[in-house]
Design a protein around this nucleic acid. Structure first.
Lengths: 246, 246
DNA sequence: ACTAATACTGAATTGCGCTCAGCGTCGTCA
DNA sequence: TGACGACGCTGAGCGCAATTCAGTATTAGT
């Protein structure tokens, strides 16, 4: 129940046959998910009927309920596939980039581009689990955690490298990042803009999170520490002189 | 239809009587809205039934439909009242504050506090008009514009006063601000935190938007730079003395 | 008091999520 | 080969909630 997808009881322990059978079941499940995805994306959650999904998947309504406990579970399955793609894309992009700035820019653009393309799924995300109270532990929560973890790691690395101001709490930065992108998506869809705006949001956002004046700060640091060292040495010498002179 | 509330045909142009009647109608409408508000807040949009609302408002189901075209319109009416309060509160608070920082802090805290208390309404907001395509021109869009305008004015003033970096586009700052608060609300409700977190989000957020700190950092830079120079000169002098003395 | 207009009612209609009694298919065994 | 059992699949039917509308109650005007 906590996991809405049903595991159709299929225990027969036979050889090649079993594999084929399971594949058959898999493929039917996928067929339903794919059909559901298309209709959800086209019409949104509320306006999608199970009978639409069933006929698109070429099964009877009842069959859908053999694979998913209810409409909600079906939606969660569709969203799980979505998160899979999203997270995989994010991980891959981050892995192939070195600097904090590049990584954040990539994550921002990747997120924005994806949620624009599949905005209906984002709406579903909003209308499904918003029952906050028992949100922790939900399927969607876990998937979201896994995705956000990619960002969190980049952030933590960034703070360690002094690319990001460590005095601002990370969860606020996270909410700011994704919140901004989410809202920006809506703004961009309402107005007709597009390409330009994506670049703008991404660069503005990254600019606010990353400390770009770092270099200047570093050399300043060096100067100060050098100066301090020299003063200490000079002081030591003066002490020696003074003690001798005395 | 675009405005879902029905104007019950009441044209009779008479004197005091007419006023009384209109008041009666008004008050019944308000009674329904208030009933709807309570049930929406308690159970959310999907789980609220018209018959619940009707019985709470002490009218028949059909009567609800004399005042509102459908459930959606009823929800919009409830949200309109909500936005009214929200916007009024925001305007009032801003008017009584002078500095950009104070104003933004107030707006952030006011927004956060309100959406935490009435989070179900925010969920409704999410699940209702997310049909982006014909969002412009919708009731909710206009109310939202009016509310956001308060923030926009503060921002514009801030840029003029050089409290805010004018090179970051305002709409991005806006989306960042409200997006961050929206997401922060969810984070705070999922985790149990509360009071402390509100302060933290507010201060972090304002700190990232307002330059004053950055300005301080700028002058700090200069100060540090000056200090470093003076220390270096002093060190040089001391070295000279030391070497001469030797 | 009578009439017309308006407000209100709640039973009936409709649409959709979900269930379940029964059907068809296929592997197994005598 | 034919019968049996298991299991996936089917779609008519149930219940619930939004919405409608034919009829009833209330009010205003004369």
């Amino acid at each position: 129940m906590s996991n809405g997808t049903k595991t159709t009881g299929k225990k027969r322990g036979n050889l090649a046959q079993a594999a084929t059978l399971r594949e058959k079941v898999q493929s039917k499940e996928n067929k339903i998910i794919r059909a559901a995805y298309e209709i959800f994306v086209a019409r949104g959650y509320a306006k999608t009927t199970i009978s639409d999904v069933a006929s698109k998947a070429e099964v009877a309504e009842g069959t859908v309920y053999l694979y998913f406990n209810n409409k909600h579970a079906l939606a969660v399955a569709v969203l799980a596939a979505f998160y899979q793609r999203l997270t995989a894309g994010a991980r891959h992009g981050v892995a192939s980039r070195a600097s904090t700035e590049d990584r954040l820019s990539f994550l921002a653009e990747h997120h924005l581009q994806t949620i624009i393309k599949e905005r209906r799924l984002m709406e579903m995300l909003a209308s499904l689990d918003r029952d906050i109270d028992n949100y922790e532990g939900s399927e969607i929560y876990k998937m979201n955690r896994a995705y956000v973890a990619v960002f969190d790691r980049v952030l933590r690395d960034g703070v360690e490298r002094d690319d990001i101001d460590g005095s601002i709490s990370q969860w606020v930065l996270r909410d700011m990042f994704f919140g901004a992108l989410d809202y920006a998506m809506r703004t961009m869809l309402i107005k007709k803009s597009r390409r330009n705006s994506i670049d703008q949001v991404v660069s503005d956002l990254v600019r606010m999170i990353v400390i770009s004046d770092r270099e200047a700060a570093m050399t300043m640091d060096k100067r100060l520490s050098n100066a301090a060292m020299r003063i200490e040495r000079a002081a030591a010498r003066m002490e020696k002189i003074a003690s001798v002179t005395k």
